[in-house]
Nucleic acid binder design. Structure first.
Lengths: 353, 353
DNA sequence: GCGCAGACGTTATACGTAAAACGTGATGGC
DNA sequence: GCCATCACGTTTTACGTATAACGTCTGCGC
């Protein structure tokens, strides 16, 4: 690059500046010998009968040669839309949400949209940082109901909102994307009941969120429907170690030990397995353990976890699709996404040993 | 949903909407009884001696009352800068990169910057999607050297570039942020050598990247420095199961079995542990295993992994800081970030049993 | 040969902000 | 008394795009 005299000798006044500036639609126009408006029409695919094929082709090749890319800021200013959506999640370090993001990004990219994240850091009081600064440049928001703190800050944002994993009744969202959580938990219970388990421990997440409430309820109903069953519950804070501690306490507690531990997610299940080991219980011979989510973790531990696979990418993708529909004024069809019980090595019939 | 008349009906023609439009700087101006330019000066903190304190205060309170937020698109258009950075990583489902993102986001937010992600999907040929569409609206790029495919697309982007985990010699980046990978691997080797290990297996990542090459080299040097040691290597593709397969093959192979497996990351280490179990080897009694990264996984498996903790958030934070410095024309000071060997239950002296 | 309808483009304008260039009174030095 | 200075703002312009409103030219019916 940096030719001796420059191929872009436009410089109307003196201006010997090298100017590696990005070409604008006007540059394309002058190269194609048309007006800037025509460039905009052609490149915006709005020329069907207003511009000849010949001219359109000239514009396109001029744009190509110059490597023209429209200036998004200018476009956004003009249109009042930014083609950017905000994705609000608790934390990307949770593999589930990383996958949700991947799904949403894919659909967004396919539609010329961008995604900006608000990972809802813990200690934040009023909305700050990415959210606040991005707010001015957003077309819509996709939010997980688990990002509770950030949600309150979203009120009054005036932006179209799509909720993920959220109670459809509870929200003023334009659309909701949900998983068949209850179905997944029912399958889990059926599986364990079929193996012969009757005494259950529910290792529940301490996070207060719709999806966890739903898991608890579905489990209670499924187990309660069978006579002669018992179900106790213990909650655990985030992290494998916290889970282990809670599970260990609960398992050590009473005389009639449960034969199966149903966990709200795979992290908790990993903790339950560690608790069992500490108590000298073998999984699954002495104690069956089930997870939820089917993270990579589920096949990294030993034994591999029986768990419920969630189509996380699909959640993100559907969320973005729904948002795009809302923005276009199209109706959104929502249905619970199916989940799947994956039976692995952490469950077996009780009393094998 | 389906409210009686729709909460946000986009009535294209009628437009009897009371215009809940965002207030502009002009609205603030008229409310404060000044010109738009004055608002811009005051809110932009460029009024020191050009506007009276009284007037400035009037502007600020008018802005406050209206809930004024500057339109980012307009600002970007005017300034030619967007206060947005692109973070290029292989995948957020890798906890390490999710943490890098968290660190970068934090620093960005503190400086009024936004972060947009390019998670470099596998099969993408030329730059597409988020990258292409964001490209027009970026001030700079932070890229992990592990996002190889995306990197080639970055050439000629003409944007300030900060590289993460990359060979400082190899790149034309404006700055580089690195970890003391070699130090971490040396510590690992020292730990195992001190325990008495002499025969090592290196379970290496199949990903060709600077950080993995560095790990291999540091291990080779540290082990090679001690007489009477042996070191073999086997590579494994991504995923716990692939790792297990590779490790199992290598462990089953020869007569003189290694007593320690040094893995390029925690995922591989989890695979190595599973391989050991399959072969009837106890970890750490019969076989020591070490990881790298200290992901959540490291304490989820049993035994917990001896591994090298990487300050992932700091990598992201430093990367963003460096980019901000570059954009401001300030010099960037770079030094390798320290890592730490964390000794847990997966390593012990050989031949305990 | 006059007007009229396409077909094909162009001119002009607005989006909201930042900042350069330009007033405008009041004060003061001499 | 008159210009210079200063304190304090205002007018104006530009950023690059999309699009409404407005030409122009050619052919054609009558």
């Amino acid at each position: 690059m940096a030719g001796p005299s420059g191929s872009r000798g436009g410089a109307p006044a003196g201006e010997g500046r090298p100017r590696a500036a990005r070409p604008t639609s006007r540059d394309v126009a002058s190269r194609a010998g048309v007006s800037q408006a025509t460039v905009s029409l052609v490149l915006g695919d709005k020329w069907r009968g207003r511009v000849s094929e010949r001219t359109a082709e000239a514009v396109r090749s001029a744009a190509q040669e110059l490597g023209y890319r429209p200036n998004l800021a200018a476009r956004s200013l003009r249109l009042g839309r930014t083609r950017t959506a905000l994705l609000v999640v608790p934390a990307l370090t949770n593999e589930y949400f990383a996958r949700v993001h991947a799904g949403a990004s894919q659909v967004a990219a396919d539609n010329g949209f961008g995604v900006v994240l608000y990972p809802s850091p813990e200690g934040v009081g009023p909305a700050r940082g990415p959210f606040d600064s991005a707010r001015a440049a957003l077309d819509g928001v996709i939010a997980s109901s688990m990002a509770a703190r950030a949600l309150t800050a979203l009120r009054g944002g005036g932006l179209p909102l799509v909720m993920l994993d959220s109670d459809p009744e509870d929200t003023d969202a334009a659309a909701t994307v949900n998983l068949d959580i209850a179905g997944g938990m029912r399958e889990t219970a059926r599986h364990l009941l079929a193996l012969g388990h009757r005494r259950f421990l529910h290792l529940a997440s301490a996070v207060d969120s719709w999806t966890f409430r739903k898991r608890a309820r579905a489990l209670r109903e499924a187990v309660g429907a069978v006579p002669g069953t018992e179900l106790s519950t213990v909650t655990a804070a985030l992290g494998v170690d916290e889970a282990r501690r809670s599970a260990e306490g609960a398992l050590r507690a009473s005389g009639r030990r449960p034969t199966a531990v149903v966990c709200d997610d795979d992290i908790l299940a990993a903790g339950a397995c560690k608790a069992a080991r500490r108590l000298g219980l073998a999984v699954p011979e002495d104690l069956s353990v089930t997870g939820f989510d089917d993270l990579a973790l589920a096949t990294a531990v030993e034994p591999e976890l029986t768990t419920v696979r969630l189509p996380a990418e699909q959640v993100g993708a559907q969320g973005m699709s729904a948002l795009l529909s809302v923005l276009d004024g199209r109706p959104v069809a929502t249905a619970d996404l199916p989940v799947e019980l994956v039976v692995r090595g952490s469950t077996a019939a009780p009393g094998v040993r």
